[in-house]
C-alpha cells in the first residue's frame, strides 16, 4: 500500500515537474477559459447579474474545454521520446499510472478553476454567497467524474494519429449526466431555495465511484504503446 502510494506520488511529481518547467498546459487552459467567459459574457452577462444556476453552466463550458486540453496534454507528454514505453516497462501496476494521471489532471483543473471561477464571478457578478458550500460540493464531485472519464479516454486516444477533436467527442457526451445533474441541482439550490439532500450528493458520488472503478479496470486494456 505504502509502496503504491509512493509510486503514485513519484509519477505525479514527474508530471508536475514537466508542467512547472514549461507551464504550457495550465497557462493555455486558463487563457482559454477566460476567453470563453468573455465570449459568453458578451451575450449573456450584458449588465445583468447572473444567478448561481447560470453560473454553473458557464463554468462547465470552461471546465469541459479546458479539461479536455489538460487530458490531451498530460498524455501527450508520454508520447515524446516513447516515454510511455518506459513507463509500461517499469515494474508498476497500470492502475498506478491511471491514478497518477487522474490526480495530475485533477490538480490542473483545480488550478484552472481557481483562476477562472473568480474571474467569472467578477465579470458576471455571480452571487454564490447564499450557498457556497453546496456549489463547492456539487462542482468538485462533478469535475471528479468528468476527470475520471477523460483520463481513461485520453489514454485510449493518445495512441491514434487523429487526436484533434476526437477526445472531446468521446468525453463530452459521456459527461453529460454530471453536467445536467450539477446545473439542475444548482437551479434547485439557488432558484427554488431547496437545500442539497444527501441523495443528490450520493448520486454524484455513485457516478464518480462507478466511473473510477470502470476506468481503473479498463485502463489496462486501453494503454498500448
Amino acid at each position: 500500500m505504502n509502496r503504491t502510494l509512493r509510486q503514485i506520488g513519484l509519477l505525479i511529481q514527474k508530471d508536475l515537474r514537466i508542467e512547472a518547467r514549461g507551464r504550457q498546459t495550465i497557462g493555455l487552459v486558463i487563457v482559454l477559459g477566460i476567453l470563453i467567459i468573455v465570449v459568453l459574457g458578451m451575450g449573456l452577462g450584458a449588465g445583468r447579474p447572473v444567478s448561481g444556476f447560470g453560473a454553473t453552466s458557464i463554468l462547465w463550458v470552461t471546465y469541459l474545454f479546458g479539461g479536455v486540453l489538460c487530458f490531451e496534454k498530460t498524455m501527450a507528454v508520454e508520447r515524446f521520446d516513447d516515454a510511455l514505453a518506459g513507463l509500461l516497462i517499469a515494474p508498476i501496476d497500470r492502475g498506478v499510472i491511471y491514478a497518477s494521471k487522474l490526480i495530475t489532471n485533477l490538480l490542473l483543473i483545480i488550478g484552472l478553476a481557481l483562476v477562472v471561477t473568480p474571474v467569472a464571478m467578477t465579470l458576471f457578478r455571480f452571487d454564490l454567497s447564499e450557498h457556497p458550500l453546496a456549489f463547492f460540493i456539487v462542482m468538485s464531485l462533478g469535475v471528479t467524474g468528468f476527470t475520471a472519464v477523460g483520463t481513461l479516454f485520453s489514454a485510449a486516444v493518445s495512441s491514434t494519429r487523429l487526436q484533434g477533436g476526437l477526445l472531446a467527442m468521446l468525453v463530452f457526451p459521456l459527461s453529460l449526466p454530471v453536467v445536467i445533474m450539477s446545473t439542475q441541482l444548482m437551479r434547485k439550490v439557488f432558484e427554488e431555495g431547496v437545500p442539497l439532500t444527501s441523495t443528490d450528493v450520493a448520486t454524484l458520488c455513485a457516478f464518480d465511484m462507478i466511473f473510477l472503478i470502470v476506468s481503473w479496470l479498463v485502463f489496462e486494456l486501453v494503454l498500448e504503446p
Binding site: L152, F153, L170, P177, F211, V214, V218, V222
Partner: peptide, 14 residues
Amino acid sequence: AMISAVYGIVAFID
C-alpha cells in the same frame, strides 16, 4: 474496435 468497445461499455453504464 478497442476504443469503440470501451466507449460502448461506458455509454451503457452512463
